[in-house]
Nucleic acid binder design. Sequence first.
DNA 1: GATGAATGAGTCTTCATTCAT
DNA 2: GATGAATGAAGACTCATTCAT
Lengths: 220, 220, 220, 220
Amino acid sequence: MVRRPATSPRKNASQERSRATVDALLTATARILVRDGYDRASTNKIAEAAGVSIGSLYQYFPSKEALVAAVLERHVGAMMEVVRASLARVATSPLPEAARELVRVMIEAHRIEPKLHRVLAEQLPRVGRMDHVERVEAEALTLVRAYLEARRDEIGVDDLDLASFLAVSCVEAMTHAAVLRRPELLSEPRFVDEVAALVVRYLGGDAATSTARPAMLGAE
Amino acid sequence: MVRRPATSPRKNASQERSRATVDALLTATARILVRDGYDRASTNKIAEAAGVSIGSLYQYFPSKEALVAAVLERHVGAMMEVVRASLARVATSPLPEAARELVRVMIEAHRIEPKLHRVLAEQLPRVGRMDHVERVEAEALTLVRAYLEARRDEIGVDDLDLASFLAVSCVEAMTHAAVLRRPELLSEPRFVDEVAALVVRYLGGDAATSTARPAMLGAE
Amino acid sequence: MVRRPATSPRKNASQERSRATVDALLTATARILVRDGYDRASTNKIAEAAGVSIGSLYQYFPSKEALVAAVLERHVGAMMEVVRASLARVATSPLPEAARELVRVMIEAHRIEPKLHRVLAEQLPRVGRMDHVERVEAEALTLVRAYLEARRDEIGVDDLDLASFLAVSCVEAMTHAAVLRRPELLSEPRFVDEVAALVVRYLGGDAATSTARPAMLGAE
Amino acid sequence: MVRRPATSPRKNASQERSRATVDALLTATARILVRDGYDRASTNKIAEAAGVSIGSLYQYFPSKEALVAAVLERHVGAMMEVVRASLARVATSPLPEAARELVRVMIEAHRIEPKLHRVLAEQLPRVGRMDHVERVEAEALTLVRAYLEARRDEIGVDDLDLASFLAVSCVEAMTHAAVLRRPELLSEPRFVDEVAALVVRYLGGDAATSTARPAMLGAE
DNA sequence: GATGAATGAGTCTTCATTCAT
DNA sequence: GATGAATGAAGACTCATTCAT
């Protein structure tokens, strides 16, 4: 079918144009989403903001949801990249250090377009792509779970599933809460310290509060 | 239209009728909200479900948002009542007991119309009445903050503001996460145990993980 | 619920208003359908032509199809009334007279808004209400079939089902063809004569062309 | 774009390619028309189904209507070929035989892509090419008219124009009705017999029902 | 001639809200 | 106060058609 060398400038030009259109759409969507919220972000407005005809929008995205889902995926992808890289790095570090890093990276990840994050987080159920976000947590959960498994003897909690669920949810929730309601906390090192302490103390267990046999963990 | 001498029973009847109409509207709104979600819950549908004309709906509520806000207020009120009563009860109890109660009551509160809670939680930002919800947390925060203040010497955390924020947010978040993603956890006593432990260990502090000068607290 | 005598002018006024709106819509639809055809008859255009808001249109008709279906039903109803009355009248008349009347009434029925009839006939499959029209033919078929049954010995065709199908379809088709392509024929008595003859000769049968055993029918 | 000396084979190749493209387009159009109906048969879909770019489609056909008109013409052409050949064959046969053949060939013609036929028949007025179809009937009419003229003395009808119109319309209509509503009839020889009888009896005339000598029918 | 990205007028439809009765 | 018919701005989406490459 192709009769000429694949370097055909024609096709490339065309592909580049497509890509530019899609990019413009995603960017415009993110902007409008932040500015107007999900409901008021009409596809016509988005197309206009992207400098693209409404027809083109629908050429690339079959529905408003699909468009927002793409923005979501892009955003989640960026967050995951940050988280993944960091967690791999501390896979073998001791608990306090690992916990600190988990908190730090969670905050870092939540700093990527925080307003967009907020809108997307609110609208997740509607976009019907909850899985994308769950994927982030699922991945974090898996990594944390594996980490705890490897250090079971340092852990003062019996049910590792529940423990990882609580640890991950907790850090995520604290970060989220801070982003949404106390943005100033994000830049205070104290905040990282405390959230990390929260996790460490919980996972470390304690004779008095332990859910199981008292563990004699001297350190961390 | 027909004018008769105003008698007090008449006025009462009228007032009662008003109240019944408002009640019917709030109840219908809650039902439709749960069944159809915020977007598809049209005011016409709500009025019909309430057995009230659309005109009357607008007599009592100036807008859809006002209507949903009223439902939200009612719901939040019910939750607050539960929380307030319980927290007053454990104001002087020792930390582990108080923490357990906090968790327990949070879960109990989230069991009030959980589906409605979910929809409202998702739509909060849109209703523009976040303050209602913040009020719940603000109240809990105040109570917890006072509690910690009173037992400062048992607490292994320096910054009581931050500590109460984290404690309250954390319990709220865990409960919320469980409601939304792991409903089965809500009925397992283990869950309460663990979340309570999380809070107690954090607030109790720990020499090794302390964020500040090591406190010499035997246990908590 | 109703507290005042049913003569309430309020309700009547309201009902009349509704009825007027529906009527205006049906009439406008018919007009636009004739003028622009089905595809170009947009609901907005129809509403405008009816002097009614688009919202009102959708208050009464849930879709464009429903609107056209209502027009169709109204039209078919008018035709059926004409046909039914006439056929009842000749139920006991001899074949030639009955046939003539069938043809005459078919033409008369097709004279009711013939342009609308044409558009509707063309769009039937799309409106998904073919049944309405089939009902007309089904009714005619039943009547004709009963008629033939009653005069079986005058009929020179064996299969009465097939015979009635052909007779009815034929008259309908001739009328239809004339309406669509030779409107001038409709006013010529010759046309009625010929179509009636067509039917009479067919049903009367003939030794030479008979499909079955030669019937010894002198004439009819 | 690449220019090479024009050689005849090249031109042929090009012409052949054009022809192949047009064929592919017509075939795809027919298929999509049958599958999706006229309205949902978008030019983009058709181009894709034909393996041709939308640009090329518009190179060969200036509009959607032109495309459908071409399909119609092709279809009508195929039908006409069948009809023409057959009618020429029976030009000198006696009436009963000729009538039978007319009916037979009409059915045969309607068996060519009946689903496409149906869609096209429904959409005719829209394509604005009714003349194509009228041409089929016009041709049949001419042939039948000539036939009747030649056998005037066997015909019991005065007005040959009207007679041929009725005969042709009738057969066409019966066939059409059968195709659309009673497909099972098409394969029953009885059906051909009856329709042929219908025509023969009509054209054969009859003393009692004759259109000529005044009949003593009351009137109506 | 071919390609396919881009166009945008126009479609159906919804729904919060108003107002005459 | 109650009613519910009416409103119309606005939304998501389609598709015949154009034109730069």
